[in-house]
Nucleic acid binder design. Sequence first.
DNA 1: GCCTGGCACTCATTCCGTGCGAGTGCCAAT
DNA 2: ATTGGCACTCGCACGGAATGAGTGCCAGGC
Lengths: 344, 344
Amino acid sequence: MQNERRLSVLRAIVEDYVKTEEPVGSKALVERHGLGVSPATVRNDMAALEEEGYITAPHTSAGRVPTDKGYRLFVDRLTTVKPMTAAEKRAIAGFLEGAVDLDDVVSRSTRLLSQLTRQVAVVQYPTLSRSTVRHVELVALAPTRLLLVLILSTGRVEQRLLEVTEEVSEETLASLRTQINTAVDGVVIAEAGEALRSIARPADQPAAAPYDTLAAAVAEALIEAMNDHRSDERISIGGTSNLARFGDSFDTAVRPLLEALEEHVVLLKLMGEATAGGLVTVRIGAEGPYQELAQTSVVATGYGPGDEALATLGVVGPTRMDYPGSMAAVRAVARYLSRILDEA
Amino acid sequence: MQNERRLSVLRAIVEDYVKTEEPVGSKALVERHGLGVSPATVRNDMAALEEEGYITAPHTSAGRVPTDKGYRLFVDRLTTVKPMTAAEKRAIAGFLEGAVDLDDVVSRSTRLLSQLTRQVAVVQYPTLSRSTVRHVELVALAPTRLLLVLILSTGRVEQRLLEVTEEVSEETLASLRTQINTAVDGVVIAEAGEALRSIARPADQPAAAPYDTLAAAVAEALIEAMNDHRSDERISIGGTSNLARFGDSFDTAVRPLLEALEEHVVLLKLMGEATAGGLVTVRIGAEGPYQELAQTSVVATGYGPGDEALATLGVVGPTRMDYPGSMAAVRAVARYLSRILDEA
DNA sequence: GCCTGGCACTCATTCCGTGCGAGTGCCAAT
DNA sequence: ATTGGCACTCGCACGGAATGAGTGCCAGGC
């Protein structure tokens, strides 16, 4: 792949095919794009591109269609990332500013992303793992029934009900509450567990006093809440109606995608590891492990406060999608979303 | 509509059509169902049914298809509700028992319902309006920054950040906390607002002391959190991949439905008022206000602790759906879901 | 050596026309 | 009121021909 013009031809094919959804022929190419050569010349280039596996002809007398390999080359080397316009940036910022809590932030981001890209948008809730503890609250709902509320730096609130054997006095509770908060406030949850356990088993006291039994139970419940990776898998999905635009290839493209969207675990695996720092990952067609999704691509990136990748977000759609546009939108939303989380 | 057999014929037509998805003819009818008459007789009945608008023929030489009116008669008078089997009941109960918090309960219900009916399931989160306050927690994140946590009887937790002008001491906060909880614990939120305001403006004190300014600010924030009807509109959707079964009528049935599912407000209006006490509402095709949804039906009911209808849940699908099965499933899930909320 | 115009060829798609068959409506008989 | 019989109607599936976009290749030109 040395020839410069061939790359232009590939780029033109991808762009046209994405726009028209129809195999593109040599004549239409030279007309729509200003490559200053004749159709015959383009045909030679196309033959070469086909030889190398970047494009393919669905049947003998039709135009050419990019292969996965072709799209890959396109996104890797041929895309000039078009930045969002100032107006778009303002719209994004404004839309996200209005959010009142974490749920709202996530759902707004989802809607935003699906509207910008006209694709299905997927936003993972920020994971607990790297966040820090902001506050722990203990509430006695009944003499032997405690409600534990765990408030994290991402704004997420986890709650647990805890039945205890002995009645708990308000003073005991207040003391424990203070002790816990002193120990874990601002600590990342990976380390908070140890801190909690050390409250229950102080080094200088050997035996298990009633107070320690209570502390141990509370500690374990909190640790469980922190490690509860169910919530890591919470995701928000939006824009499924955009699939309607692909009503043609229903069985090959839409149906498997709908099924994948139900399987959150699969979906998260698809989105892949969160990549921080404005890097956008693109998975094209059969590059992934799921053959049923050979016709779908994923454009994703990580986000999180302070450029730490706490979670991923992205769009899912047919391989024939507007990669530059999607990548720009995904990156922009991730950036603003991270900023919001910074402030919170 | 006097004739008894005609009703049987209608019932048979609906059942067959739902099963085969193809117009049903007179001959097939007498074979599949044991009505002891000849095809010719059935034809006469069909002619009469068509005359009265219960069925229609897509074209001259095809079988008959039920109209909306036909489905309506079917669900109103011809369905013998088949109760869930004991095994099914056990499965439902077991599946819902495993839930750990409100989010989990709702998402499990959604999955359950969509699997039982093989339709798209919609579950509205329990509304705040009729629930009671269980606890209010005030946390000082910083000297002038308070976190308000509102815990409701449904298990829902609302949080609000509040910036105050004066620094708040821990004692003041504790006092206010006690005062608030004494005032609103167990009170339905509709009345809790008044109780909160009376703390800020005690009858025997005329002026606004600093303490009262704080109390007023907290009260207003809490009231806002209570009245925040955004959360009333939270819904969980599942089983969209079941729409794949209707890939044929994509444009007329699937696409509008996908669009409606994005519009939560529309969806909630569709599900309608929550009907309590095991009553299941069925909206068939064009009976609703949305012409685009002329091909879709909704089977819904209310649920909530103590048979109070706090929210709705149901399934959405094409008019050609298994009404008895869906109704049974919706009712069963609503019942078990209510029971879970009772316990919590 | 690369580009270009010309030309024969291929093959999916579209458009008719036909035949088939499921299903109906009606009628006369029971 | 029910039934068997029969002519009739159309939608649909099948098949062949026309269409035309697009290609591959070749010989000539810059």
